[in-house]
């Protein structure tokens, strides 16, 4: 097996061709950006900032982008690549770097080199925005305990779940009372979050054989009227949207 690959001997590539490619790529990209900034009626630095901030936006389980003046940033970038590739090919041809017998292969190689350079450039810009994201999340979550981080993420649902767990000894199964449509988001997700954080002290989604003696009321209109008389209320939020009740016999 070869340890060295002679076909990848960089010193055989004319350095001047490479310099031309770098220069043309940079100039065409800068010119394109300048043109776009004029079209969008903004400054070049502002456009660069918008491009940087448009990338890397984690959302649920995927990554979204933010449009720039209503245009998808990747469409702008594809335009930049197309222009850079075209200018590079024209420049290399003008400087006689694309001999006729090797022209198509050279053109393909130029296209791929420019596109890979474009990918690396976009990755670099994206990395800056990932760093911004890191700084933002670090400010929010840095130094916090897991419970505090959960509180930041889930707010009242988490507080309610923690309060229920502290007040309720042992493990129980619970019935959920709600007016929310749990078959669709966002309420389906809220239900899952509540169930996750109440478990194991209160099991809403698993029949685990624990006493089925609690009622969890979550955004139920006139909830107090629906709680049976033999249940005692342990947790009641001011707006009555979060209620925990337990059967009296379980408290004895």
């Amino acid at each position: 097996m070869a340890d060295q690959c002679p076909n990848n001997n960089l010193s055989s590539k004319p350095f001047s061709h490479f310099i031309i490619l770098i220069l043309v790529f940079s100039i065409s990209l800068a010119s394109y950006m300048f043109l776009i900034s004029k079209l969008f009626n903004t400054s070049l630095s502002d456009l660069a900032l918008q491009i940087k901030n448009s990338l890397y936006h984690p959302h649920i389980n995927l990554c979204t982008v933010i449009t720039i003046s209503g245009i998808h940033p990747l469409k702008l970038f594809y335009g930049a690549l197309a222009i850079s590739v075209s200018c590079s090919i024209i420049a290399l041809k003008a400087f006689h770097c694309l001999p006729k017998e090797q022209q198509i292969d050279s053109i393909i190689e130029t296209v791929m080199t420019v596109c890979i350079a474009g990918l690396l450039l976009l990755s670099g810009i994206q990395q800056i925005h990932r760093y911004d994201f890191f700084k933002n999340e670090q400010n929010i979550f840095g130094g916090e305990t897991v419970e505090e981080r959960n509180q930041i993420l889930f707010g009242r649902i988490y507080d309610f779940a923690q309060t229920c767990k502290k007040l309720l000894p042992g493990t129980h199964q619970g019935k959920l009372m709600t007016d929310l449509d749990l078959n669709n988001d966002p309420y389906m997700l809220l239900h899952r979050i509540l169930s996750y954080h109440l478990y194991p002290e209160i099991s809403l989604r698993l029949d685990n054989g624990a006493p089925n003696d609690t009622i969890v009321s979550f955004y139920k209109h006139d909830a107090l009227m629906h709680i049976p008389e033999n249940y005692r209320i342990l947790v009641l939020s001011k707006d009555k949207n979060y209620i925990l009740a337990i059967e009296n016999r379980s408290l004895k």
Binding site: I60, E137, R149, R192, S195, Y196, Y199, N208
Partner: peptide, 22 residues
Amino acid sequence: LSMTIPVSSWDAVASVAFKAKI
């Protein structure tokens, strides 16, 4: 990022981490 943000995504709280908790 993994060791900072707690379990919070849809599938995690609904299924993956919830089953692990069980």
